[in-house]
């Protein structure tokens, strides 16, 4: 049997790198938010400390099987999503499992985590969790449509559904899809705002309103798993958008710069905006991002 040891190394290290980068980004976000609000802010390792503390807490309350499985689903979906995205361009180690046609597969697997969470939160029987789940799923319907439209526009334009092919298209700076298909980028980045769950689209976990929503009954290790999953998933989404629109990255420094700049878009938007209600955010997603997505497809087709 011929085992490619380099791929195995990639498979082992990718989630760890994703976790560290995602957690650091989370801590940096809190610090940046604090600086903008004229505060000193927590250290950038704050999110990591929170996660370690949550893993060390006792977890003795259980509501049923699905509550255990919900966070597990979420982290499975995050890691699977990450595996199907080529993290570093043309690298043997970090290509992982990406194959032809992976964009369509990614569209499916990215939703899986939210659905798992919805099932887990539904099991707990907390009314706040139920409200949060319904809000989250409605909002997901909102941002998935412009996201899919943007991806479809790109797929039609380049006649491929493979991320590796898309990376091969963007060889030089001028070839980046953000310049080749700016309308698709606008639709995609607006959907990305909703996907990240920062304000103004944070009605799902609104802490002052519905007591943090779906995770309101999850404490200790469950919450730690969910925060881990969130960190990994953040990184996966950032890498996906970098690969699609910003020409990928051939080394880690470029990757960090590109993903960080991309990450700052939802973070900085979130700091200055108040919260949308569910129907307002759905209205928003079905208005401008949708128009840009349809326009992107029309430009490609005509």
């Amino acid at each position: 049997m011929n085992i490619n040891w380099l791929s195995v190394l990639g498979i082992i290290t990718t989630p760890i790198i994703a976790f560290i980068v995602g957690v650091t980004y989370g801590g940096l976000t809190r610090r940046i938010t604090a600086r903008i609000q004229n505060r000193y802010g927590p250290p950038s390792s704050q999110n990591l400390l929170d996660i370690i503390k949550l893993y060390s807490k006792e977890t003795s309350i259980q509501h049923g099987v699905m509550q255990h499985l919900g966070p597990v689903f979420a982290i499975t979906a995050s890691i699977t999503t990450l595996y199907f995205i080529p993290v570093i361009k043309n690298s043997v180690v970090f290509t992982n499992l990406s194959f032809n046609g992976d964009l369509i597969f990614l569209l499916y697997i990215m939703v899986f985590g939210s659905l798992g969470m919805a099932l887990g939160a539904g099991q707990t029987g907390n009314p706040n969790a139920a409200i949060g789940v319904s809000r989250g799923l409605s909002q997901m319907v909102g941002y998935e449509i412009p996201f899919v439209l943007s991806l479809v526009a790109i797929m039609t334009q380049f006649h491929t559904t493979s991320l590796t092919d898309l990376l091969a298209v963007q060889k030089h700076f001028a070839d980046w899809i953000i310049f080749q298909s700016p309308l698709a980028f606008i639709a995609g980045i607006l959907a990305f705002l909703g996907m990240m769950g920062y304000a103004p689209f944070d009605v799902v976990i609104a802490p002052a309103e519905i007591a943090s929503g779906p995770p309101s009954e999850f404490g200790g290790k469950y919450l730690a798993l969910m925060m881990t999953s969130r960190s990994i998933f953040t990184f996966a989404k950032l890498v996906l958008f970098t690969d699609i629109f910003l020409g990928g990255a051939s080394d880690f420094i470029t990757l960090i710069i590109k993903t960080f700049l991309l990450y700052m878009i939802p973070v900085l938007t979130g700091i200055v905006f108040p919260r949308f209600r569910t129907e307002q955010s759905i209205c928003f997603f079905w208005k401008w991002p949708l128009v840009f997505g349809v326009l992107a497809i029309l430009v490609v087709v005509l």
Binding site: R30, A34, Q37, N38, R39, Y40, G41, P42, P43, Q46, L49, D50, I61, N128, P207, A208, A211, S212, P215, S216, E217, F218, G219, G220, L223
Partner: peptide, 18 residues
């Protein structure tokens, strides 16, 4: 912002479980 307890890692949480 005046006293900013978050710099010590002190944060509010919404539910007693967390």
């Amino acid at each position: 912002s005046r006293y900013d307890a978050e710099r010590f890692g002190i944060r509010g949480s919404a539910t007693p479980r967390q």
